[in-house]
């Protein structure tokens, strides 16, 4: 799977990469530090990712704004976008689902719990048929 990870926090990126490698998964991870960078990457058609994982709190274009742009784009809107967030805020969750996210995953406090959760997410999307 080709995964676009949109995350501004370096440690979070490390966490994700370490988790993927520790799980022995062979996914390709494309990193973007913010929504703007991500949109640039998505502009290159033959390099579209299979799924997008993103944090909601980002500088420049925030998560919700990014999702809105994504879902209004005919080509990009079919890519499942999964939110990774520390926020349990109901308002945010509701808005994200309204825009059309594929999932909303809370970042657990402990790294061990994080690994378990990411494993499940990867297993789930690994089992899904995706539009190529």
């Amino acid at each position: 799977m080709k995964i676009l990870l949109i995350e501004d926090d370096a440690i979070e990126i490390m966490k994700f990469q370490r988790t993927i490698s520790s799980l022995g998964l062979k996914h390709e991870i494309i990193e973007a530090r913010n929504g703007e960078e991500a949109l640039k990457l998505l502009g290159v058609k033959n390099k579209l990712p299979d799924i997008i994982l993103l944090d909601l709190n980002m500088p420049k274009i925030n998560g919700i704004e990014f999702l809105t742009i994504l879902k209004n784009n005919e080509v990009l809107s079919v890519i499942p976008a999964i939110v990774l967030s520390t926020s349990r805020n109901n308002r945010d969750i509701l808005e994200c689902y309204k825009i059309g996210i594929a999932g909303y995953v809370l970042k657990p406090l402990k790294y061990e719990d994080y690994v378990l959760r990411i494993e499940k997410v990867m297993l789930y999307w690994g089992e899904n048929e995706l539009y190529k």
């Binding site: 440690i11 966490k15 709190n57 520390t86 926020s87 945010d92 406090l109 402990k110 994080y114």
Partner: peptide
């Protein structure tokens, strides 16, 4: 409150990840 909480929560997660590593 939400933004502050988020900003506070993220470092905690990072710290725990780092200690774990």
């Amino acid at each position: 409150a939400h933004i502050v909480s988020h900003d506070l929560k993220s470092p905690l997660r990072s710290i725990l990840a780092l200690t774990s590593w």
